[in-house]
Structure formats: C-alpha cells, structure tokens
C-alpha cells in the first residue's frame, strides 16, 4: 500500500488548476457554475461505478500503488479523485480548445 496513485492524481489535478488559473477556463471563468458541473459530473460517474461494481463487472485490482482506503466495497478513495480529474480535464479541454482555436484564427 502506498499513496503513489493518489499523489499522481493530485499532481494531475494541480496541473489542471494551473492551466485554469492562467487561462481562466473553468473555475476561473464561473466558479459557481464550474463547482455545480464538476460535482454533478462526479456524482454521475460515481453512480456508474457503483452499478458496475454492484453488477460484478469490474472491481478494484490488486496493486501496491493505492492507499487501501475504500469509500465502499471495491470503490477506492482514489476513484473519487480520478473522476474529479476526468471531469475537470474534459471541461479544460473543451474551453481550452475553444481558446486555442480563437487564438489561431486571430493570427491568420
């Protein structure tokens, strides 16, 4: 057991925060809306996980990289951070791509 995976996820989340802060993409665009969107997204994906676990489709793997802290049977603490990262990443990608495309159009 270790916190490696959790630290990697937190570092990735930190990178999203830096991008967001620098380019005002998600939380630095509209903090309240961003919070509601990410919370709703995480709840939605967590429900998906819970059903997948309950139906026996997937489970936590055997590995030395996780803390071993479980939110529910087979649902590790890390999954919460992974899903938050996925939601944040998607919003940063969509708003970030918009920003990049705008910049490219401005140059041409």
């Amino acid at each position: 057991m270790s916190a490696i995976y959790l630290i990697v996820l937190l570092a990735a989340l930190g990178c999203m925060v830096l991008l967001d802060h620098r380019f005002a993409l998600v939380f630095w665009r509209r903090a309240g809306v961003a919070t509601a969107v990410v919370v709703a997204g995480v709840v939605f994906l967590l429900a998906w996980d819970v059903f997948g676990i309950g139906l026996g489709i997937f489970a936590r793997g055997e590995n030395p990289y996780m803390t071993g802290i479980l939110l529910a049977p087979q649902l590790p603490l890390e999954e919460l951070f992974f899903l938050a990262f996925l939601c944040y990443l998607v919003m940063v990608l969509v708003t970030g791509a918009d920003r990049v495309l705008e910049w490219l159009r401005g140059r041409s």
Partner: peptide, 23 residues
C-alpha cells in the same frame, strides 16, 4: 466514461450557467 463526460458536462454548464444564480 469520457464520451459521457464530454456530452454531459458542457450540457450541464449550459443549463447551470443559464440559472444565473447570484453567488
């Protein structure tokens, strides 16, 4: 998972954003 997130999150952004909730 990522496909659903791509469909869901911007839609939620549009819906929640339209609420124009005071802070």
């Amino acid at each position: 998972y990522p496909v659903a997130a791509l469909v869901l999150l911007p839609s939620l952004w549009s819906l929640f954003g339209a609420l124009r909730l005071p802070a």
